[in-house]
Each structure stands twice: as C-alpha cells, then as structure tokens.
Design a protein around this nucleic acid. Structure first.
Length: 503
RNA sequence: GCCCCGGUAGUGUAGCCCGGCCCAGCAUUUUGGCCUUUCGAGUCAACGACCCGGGUUCGAAUCCCGGCCGGGGCACCA
C-alpha cells in the first residue's frame, strides 16, 4: 500500500470550524454505512473530517452505522475490513471505533424517557394511511393522544414481539403543524426481525438514523459534524432532540453532492458485480473503491488534495477525475520509471541496420539521467535475419509510405508499406527526424519482449508486450509506458499484469 | 402539492456575512509557442465567468425584491 505523506497537503484555505472555543476539544466522527468499501465519492466526507480533526488536534471516531437497514440498504460484512483498509490508505487517523449495533440499549433507554416526557409516542397506524391522512394533511392521529402508560405498554409490545414488523413504531413529536411535511412526527424506532450480521436476533426494535445520531452525537461527545446535505432534515430532527434535553448543539456543517463526470459510482451495482464475478473484486477499477485507486497507483495525497480543493460549499459539484490525475502526476511522475509497451503490435522488418546498432539505450527517466539507462536489445532470430520490432498499430496506420520516423532511442527509418510491413534504416542521429518533424515512436523487439496485460479503467484487459527489461521491475512499481500512460504493476506471474492509472 | 437549499470561466474554487483594494484571483482543462529522443514533465502565453430583471447606493459579484434554472427533502433507508 502506498504511504501518504501528510506534510505534502498543506493548509488549504478552508474556513475555520465554527465555535471551536465553546468545546474543550474538537471531536468528529466518520459514519459510513458498511455496504462496501469506501469509494472516491465517500472519500470527501472522510478527508474533510480527518482534515479538521488534524487541524484542531481533535479526536476522530469511526462509527459503523450498522443498524438493520432495509431491503434496499444491506450490510456487506466485508465492509468492516474494507473500510478501515481504505482509511489507512488515505492516511486517516481515527482514535476509536464504535458499532451502532452495540448501542441499542442506549437508544431504548432514551426511547422510554422520551415517551415518559411525552415527547414521543407509539403509533400503530398503517404507514401508508398515516402518510396520506396525517402527514400530508398535518392532522395528528389518535395514537398521539394516548396517555403515557398506554404508550409504555405499547412500547413493551414492540419489544416483546406482540406487534409484528410494521405493526407499530415510535414517533417523535416534532409537530404535526410544521409547514415542512418532512418534519411531522417522524418515526424514530421501528420493528425489524431481519437477522443482524453482528447481534443476530437479539433485538427486534431498531432506531432510525436521525434518532440514533440525535442521541449518539451527544453520547459520544461529537462537537462538529461535517456531512452531505442530503442529511439536513436529519440534522433538524437531531436538533429537536438536543433541545428536549438541553444539550449543547454540535455544529452542523453540510457539503453538497459530489458527482464525477467520468466515473459512475454505484455501490449496489459494484456489490452485485463483485458477487457475480463480473468484476475482478473490490479492487476492480469500475468500483472506484479506494482499493482500486491504490491498485492503480493513485497517491492518497492526490485524492486528498483534489477533494480538499473542493472546499466546504453546500453547492452540488460535478468534477472530473482529471483533477485527481493531475495531482497524481505532480506527485508521482518524477518517481515513475519509463518503459515501452505496445498493445497490438504491427511487426516491422528492419532493413539495413548497421552492425554497430545492436540495442537501444534509453533513460530510465528523462529528467534524471543519473538513474541510468534501460537496454533494449535488437536481437534477431538468426544472425543474418533482419531485426523485427513491433510498433503500435495506431502509429503504423497513422504514418504513410516513405515517412521518416524514429524508433525512440534507437535510430531513424523510412517506412515501407508493402505486403509485409518494413522499414529501412535511414540514419542514427535524432536530429534528422527532428528537422523534418517526423514521428518519434515507441516500440518493442520481437525477441525477448514480455507479455503484459494492461487493465484499463473500464475493466477491459489489453494484452500486449513490454520491453524485455520490465521483467526485472518490482511488483507495485508505478511506471509510465511512454506515450501510453501511467500504470502500476500489481502482479508478476507468467505475464506482467498492470493497472492503467491515467495519461 | 408542501418545505429547504443553491446559481462566479468547460470544471472546481476565492471573494459575498463586514458594498469600493475585483474592468474578478487561483487551480485544472483546452489551445498555441519554447524546451524535451514520450502524446509525460518543465516553461511562456492565450481563450474563458459574477443566471436574468428591477431596486438601494456616489459605488454591488457582494445588500433587498421578483423571475428563471438547478439540487434536495416529504421512507417504519442510510
């Protein structure tokens, strides 16, 4: 795994956190729903929270928001390992880990208290009826008139199984006359008999997100909450709860939705494709998971920088992965050794190559000659046979018969487009090609080149050949295939397998 | 139907709260030059924006009103 260097990401012009002085210490939390690994879209929430915690030397709590969910929102057990793995990759430091599913007793305790305070009631109305007849019209249902003892009795029936699923739910009295229908006596606890991956069937009453956080943000001592604006209604309900108990309000900060023009983020789709084996795993580039970005050699600081550059605005954002790639190039280009890779080679017989040109000597990195050179041998099948090299079919088709071109770091040739692709030696000096503006293209020798599989961002695997020297490259190396793009080696078996990163 | 929020160049962002230093800064993208034995890096340059209409004011991207456009919420999901 790549190591992040926090020093690189300097103080960005992000605003100060509000009311920091009103709290003894900044405490923030990360609350992913464990439905899969974190992806680039989730990374914004993570990085923003981590950034501020570090800026104020605060504390960060990782809270797995693993309540029972719904048919559509299902917990993926692997996420409990994949999420921390992603956080480590991003160099996020968290100080403790909490599972919502360990805290049901707390939510029950407050539920009883809220009922006793007449701030909540148990409603047994049909959900659809309630929505149409009560929520939409702003008219309270008869359950809301129940006496406390009655509500407590109903609450017990929720716990003991008398009520079936959807048979009853606890509603918070946020007010039926609120002009915003979304705010009218929202359900805060409901029954679910779905088996939970951690606590099994121990509980049948589960809290909803807004309620569990209304309690837990206080119980965990959270001071600042930075989250997506899809949760503003939930924030209002939390505030309602904080007011009931007269708790100091944590500061709520919302940011807008983030979309990528060039990446489709769908955890449920990824989940399905991974399960069915369509994707190679949770590090398949199409998942856009942090694991997949790591595999492609994206430096965590490139993600950090690009995401922090978005600021903290509540406006929706449509950005491009190009921003991440640009940062990555800055961070990693200097360390990326160069190599030749040709995808679907057109084999060229080289005619008239002088005896003294037996190999090309190319720099490992053009900006750092001190790093030495790569030798690319021009070996032949037989001593008197012509040398044979492969060039990209794109290059071959782009050039015309008679064109002067250069096989990079080797020599200049004139292209012959006969029955068999051929090129005749012209000269050795690069200036000959420069003067006429000829192409300088990459190539691989027929002999000794190494099979390479390059996995593209869309999952397509391109089979090709790499220059002989790459068999010595270490697994994990982030390199640049000249004129193709940056990529990272992730497997060295019979073939060298490489994940494409970006141009 | 009801409620909330937002709208600065292709993209993102700074400025907006506390009007003048903004004929709007920065990054990225794109284009062109230079450089370079890569379509990478470097370097120089260019293109490119305050949603619209009123109002307040000596002066508005910044304040007020209206409109338009966009996003979100109204789940016994998170």
């Amino acid at each position: 795994m790549l190591k992040a260097t926090p020093e690189i990401v300097g103080e960005k012009d992000l605003p100060d956190l509000p009311n920091v002085d009103k709290w003894p210490k900044v405490i923030m939390r990360l609350a992913p729903f464990p439905s899969g690994p974190l992806h680039i879209g989730n990374a914004r929430m993570v990085i923003l929270n981590d950034y501020y915690v570090k800026r104020y030397s605060g504390e960060l709590i990782l809270v797995f928001d693993d309540t029972i969910g719904s048919a559509e929102k299902v917990v993926e057990p692997a996420a409990f390992d994949l999420i921390p793995e992603g956080l480590e990759y991003l160099n996020v430091k968290w100080h403790r880990t909490v599972y919502k599913s360990d805290r049901l007793e707390i939510f029950y305790k407050y539920a009883v208290d809220l009922i006793n305070r007449n701030e909540a009631y148990v409603c047994d109305c049909d959900a659809d009826v309630w929505r149409k007849e009560h929520k939409a019209k702003g008219k309270a249902c008869s359950c809301s008139l129940l006496r406390t003892e009655e509500n407590l009795a109903r609450w017990e029936k929720m716990l003991d199984g008398t009520y079936p699923e959807r048979g009853a739910a606890v509603r918070l009295r946020t007010g039926m006359t609120d002009p915003d229908p979304a705010m009218r006596d929202h359900v805060i606890l409901r029954i679910s008999e779905t088996e939970h991956h951690r606590v099994g069937t121990k509980y049948r009453v589960w809290p909803l997100l807004e309620y569990s956080w209304g309690i837990d943000d206080h119980e965990l001592g959270v001071t600042h909450i930075i989250r997506g604006k899809d949760l503003v209604k939930e924030g209002k309900i939390e505030q309602h709860i904080w007011n009931i108990y007269n708790w100091q309000h944590p500061e709520l900060i919302y940011f807008g939705r983030l979309k990528f023009q060039d990446a489709t983020l769908s955890k449920s789709k990824s989940s399905k494709e991974v399960r069915e084996g369509v994707y190679t795993g949770w590090d398949d580039p199409r998942t856009w998971s942090l694991q997949s970005l790591d595999k492609r050699g994206i430096h965590p600081d490139a993600i950090r920088k690009a995401l922090l550059d978005l600021g903290l605005s509540i406006t929706d954002i449509s950005m491009s992965m190009k921003a991440v790639y640009a940062e990555n190039r800055k961070l990693r280009d200097a360390d990326a050794p160069r190599a030749f890779f040709v995808e679907t080679p057109v084999w060229l017989n080289l005619d008239g190559v002088p005896k003294d040109i037996q190999a090309a000597e190319a720099p490992v990195h053009p900006d750092f000659p001190e790093r030495g050179t790569r030798i690319i041998p021009l070996s032949r099948e037989k001593a008197d046979a012509p040398a044979k090299v492969g060039i990209a079919d794109r290059d071959y088709e782009r050039m015309s018969k008679g064109d002067l071109f250069r096989l990079k770091d080797l020599a200049n040739f004139i292209l012959k487009k006969g029955k068999k692709p051929q090129a005749n030696f012209h000269s050795a000096d690069v200036n000959e090609v420069r003067q006429v503006g000829g192409s300088i293209i990459h190539w691989i020798p027929k002999q000794d080149s190494v099979p390479v599989e390059l996995t593209m961002v869309d999952g397509e695997v391109m089979a090709g050949l790499g220059e002989p020297g790459i068999c010595d490259i270490e697994n994990g190396t982030f390199l640049q295939f000249e004129r193709v793009g940056f990529a990272r080696v992730f497997d060295k078996g019979e073939k060298i397998r490489v994940a494409f990163s970006h141009k």
